[in-house]
């Protein structure tokens, strides 16, 4: 037995190659983040000159101070955290309820519902009709605009339908025999066995909420409701000049664009919390990525 487990030279070479490739992939994946963090702790003008690879050349906390002395960043963190927690929770609930309903083959008009939903998934009205819908629903300039439009995610719903259809029908039947209603079956039987699904939807939805700036830019005018990603985008876009406009010379010669270091400090602030949460959901994500891929 011991002899059978002995690793041959071929195994060792193969392992070395695999480790080498993985090391390259690891460095290629992690180094950009690492460098961004390093540059965010470096003095701005100096960072523009390049040549910084592993450690700040002129270390400073000034880039972070510059952001945090602006209280609107603190507010933005609060708004973003609130929309992420509330939005993710409600999206998971709403999506799974609808998916559960649509996964039941007995549902009357199921094909019609699916047809409408899939049509809506493929064909978007575009930003202006969307804006008009939000206005008619009185969602503009309110916190609800971050939550309501994404309550139902069609893609996750399709994944969830597939997942629910793969659950053994005996689970539901035995619960019904024991006198459970649909709500009871869903909350006490289906949800507990669907944790990988729920965790996967939750984490991807959370990332989406955390990174979303578009809705804050287009549908919000109240500065107290700005999100972190919006603030980050605003910092980055301060360096953007449309050279085709009459403003190009004005901007080019006089406006001191936000330094790369401040942009990266903003990015670090925006990314760190969601990055910290990821490892806790990792096992669910791995399980979740194959959800619905095999139908029995």
């Amino acid at each position: 037995m011991r002899r059978a487990n002995r690793r041959t030279m071929e195994d060792k070479v193969l392992d070395a190659i695999i480790f080498a490739i993985l090391a390259v992939v690891f460095v290629a994946s992690v180094y950009p983040f690492f460098l961004a963090i390093v540059l965010s702790f470096n003095e701005g003008l100096d960072a523009q000159l390049g040549g910084i690879y592993l450690w700040p050349r002129k270390p400073t906390l000034q880039n972070y101070e510059q952001l945090f002395k602006d209280l609107s960043w603190v507010k933005a963190i609060g708004v973003t955290a609130a929309r992420t927690v509330l939005g993710s929770f409600l999206t998971v609930m709403f999506t799974s309820v609808v998916a559960y309903g649509l996964s039941q083959r007995e549902l009357i008009g199921r094909k019609a519902y699916m047809g409408v939903i899939i049509f809506a998934m493929y064909f978007s009205g575009g930003i202006i009709p969307y804006y008009a819908v939000l206005r008619s629903l009185r969602l503009l300039n309110s916190f609800a605009v971050y939550i309501a439009p994404s309550l139902l995610n069609i893609f996750y719903m399709l994944v969830a339908i597939s997942f629910f259809q793969g659950l053994p029908s005996e689970l539901n039947e035995s619960a019904r025999i024991d006198g459970a209603g649909e709500i009871k079956i869903f909350s006490s039987i289906v949800i507990p066995v669907s944790l990988p699904l729920i965790a996967t939807i939750a984490i991807f939805t959370s990332v989406g909420h955390w990174n979303s700036w578009y809705d804050s830019a287009f549908f919000i005018q109240n500065d107290n409701l700005r999100t972190l990603a919006y603030k980050l985008m605003a910092v980055i876009r301060r360096s953007y000049v449309d050279f085709n406009s009459a403003a190009a010379t004005e901007a080019g010669t006089r406006i001191k664009a936000t330094s790369l270091s401040v942009q990266l400090a903003a990015m670090t602030i925006a990314v760190t919390p969601i990055l910290a949460v990821y490892p806790f959901f990792q096992r669910y994500i791995i399980a979740g990525t194959t959800l619905g891929s095999v139908k029995g």
């Binding site: 709403f94 309903g101 939903i117 629903l137 309501a148 309550l151 139902l152």
Partner: peptide
Amino acid sequence: RFASLTSLAMAIIMALAACG
């Protein structure tokens, strides 16, 4: 009951998704 519940959920979806 099942159809009622599902229809209710669908009605809410439609309200949110429809071009008002």
